[in-house]
């Protein structure tokens, strides 16, 4: 409890020093950094992290301020969970929004499509190599 209050006080003071950061940001982050930190702290709660990423995307879409990398990050959680269709969808969204991501997203999409096909052929998905090559 005390730690939480201290943390909050500190966060406010950080915002004050960073000034511009809190007033108006380019993107709708929705505490993305805090959520990623909690994921690294407590990786077991993976579903919670996935849901939070999705929330950030949905909120960001309302204001047209989805941060760079978020579609891809969420798509990757779906890839890791074995939902290759969903992962493709989000990799495509990232690719459409950010031209800088296109080379990587093309690889991610073709990986996801490959795994989607092979998971349909066999009940057990085969191990594919890392993919980013």
């Amino acid at each position: 409890m005390r730690i939480a209050i201290l943390g909050r006080v500190f966060a406010v003071s950080v915002c004050l020093t960073a000034a511009s950061g809190c007033v108006s940001t380019r993107y709708s982050w929705n505490d993305y950094d805090q959520k990623l930190y909690h994921h690294y702290k407590d990786p077991v709660k993976y579903d919670e992290f996935c849901a939070q990423l999705k929330e950030i995307i949905e909120d960001g879409e309302e204001s047209g301020r989805v941060p760079p990398g978020l579609y891809a990050e969420y798509g990757f959680t779906q890839y890791e969970k074995g939902d290759f269709k969903a992962s493709c969808k989000y990799f495509k969204l990232e690719s459409d929004k950010w031209p800088e991501s296109r080379a990587l997203m093309a690889k991610m999409i073709s990986n996801a499509e490959l795994r989607d096909k092979s998971s349909k052929k066999q009940s057990q998905p085969p191990v594919t190599e890392g993919g980013a090559q």
Partner: peptide, 11 residues
């Protein structure tokens, strides 16, 4: 990203 760059998804 707020500085204006495309940042690759770190995770």
């Amino acid at each position: 990203a707020e500085r204006g760059y495309y940042v690759f998804p770190v995770n």
